[in-house]
Structures are given as structure tokens and as C-alpha cells.
């Protein structure tokens, strides 16, 4: 067991976790934050993406025990009285069908917009498609997801 204290969506969250507990399990089972989805066993689908210290990571491929002192943001932590611009854009552009991949798409979308803004690079449609390589959607065919992220980038 490892004693960890992290900040999840702005609130302190601590607990004794077994070494093998994945961040995705810690979020879903210990904190009951089930917005973070688990869609595969192979670290490939991206449904589980959250932000750790401001960077997109696959929560199914990080040990909770390694995150003492970390700041974690999940999809539940985005809306602040009103929806985050990325959430609004997915709604407006019909960026989801079943919604299973959506939490990961939204967290990856915010991460790429933030990175490109910081680096002063233009987030073109081609760049969005390239950046989404680690997020798989079995419903939408991606077009509306790309549109949503492009739309949100303009208002973030």
C-alpha cells in the first residue's frame, strides 16, 4: 500500500492504494468519478484520457501510487458553473453519438488547443486529426469531432 494525496478537480483526494491500482481505477472505483471511461486493455483507445499536471495522459496506463502530489483534472472538473467551451462545441457540432469516447476526446481536445496556443502554432484540421491519433471513436467517423475541436479552439 502506498499513501497518496493528489488534487482531483481542485479537491484534495487521498487514500492508501495498492501498488497495482491504475489511475483510472482510482478515479472510478475510489472516487466514483465515472466520467473517465475505460475502453480497452491495450492503452490504445484514449477513452480514459485525463490531465495530470496539465498534460493529457492515459489514466489506464499510470499507477495511482506514482501520483503523490499531482494535480489531476477529469471531465467532471471542466464545467465551472457553465460548460467548458470544448463541451459546448461537442454539443453544438454533434461531436458524439454513443458518447463512450467523448470524455477522452474532450480532454485530448483541450490539451492540444492549450499546447498549440502556448507554442504559437496554428491548430489546423490536419493537425487536429494527427493529434487525435491516440483517441479511437467507433461511431462518428471523426468529422464532427474534428469540427468540434476546431470550433472550441476559436473560443478558448
Amino acid at each position: 500500500m502506498t499513501q497518496v494525496t493528489m488534487t482531483v478537480n481542485g479537491k484534495a483526494a487521498s487514500g492508501d492504494v495498492p501498488g497495482e491500482t491504475l489511475l483510472s481505477d482510482f478515479l472510478r472505483e475510489h472516487l466514483r468519478l465515472t466520467g473517465t471511461h475505460v475502453g480497452c486493455d491495450t492503452s490504445q483507445c484514449g477513452a480514459c484520457v485525463v490531465h495530470v499536471d496539465g498534460k493529457a495522459v492515459k489514466s489506464c496506463t499510470v499507477l495511482a501510487a506514482s501520483l503523490d502530489g499531482a494535480e489531476v483534472t477529469t471531465v467532471e472538473g471542466l464545467a465551472n458553473g457553465e460548460l467548458h467551451p470544448m463541451q459546448v462545441a461537442f454539443n453544438d457540432n454533434h461531436g458524439l453519438q454513443c458518447g463512450f469516447c467523448t470524455p477522452g476526446m474532450i480532454m485530448s481536445g483541450i490539451d492540444m488547443v492549450n499546447r498549440y496556443k502556448t507554442e504559437g502554432r496554428e491548430l489546423t484540421e490536419e493537425a487536429i486529426r494527427h493529434e487525435l491519433e491516440g483517441n479511437i471513436c467507433r461511431c462518428t467517423g471523426y468529422h464532427n469531432i474534428v469540427r468540434s475541436i476546431k470550433d472550441a479552439a476559436a473560443s478558448m
Binding site: S43, G46, K55, A56, K58, S108, E131, E133, G134
Partner: peptide, 9 residues
């Protein structure tokens, strides 16, 4: 290498 989330870790 891989995708952005893989590159972050």
C-alpha cells in the same frame, strides 16, 4: 512516437 498522451509519459 505513438500519440500525444503516450509522448507525455
Amino acid at each position: 512516437i505513438g500519440d500525444p498522451a503516450v509522448r507525455h509519459m
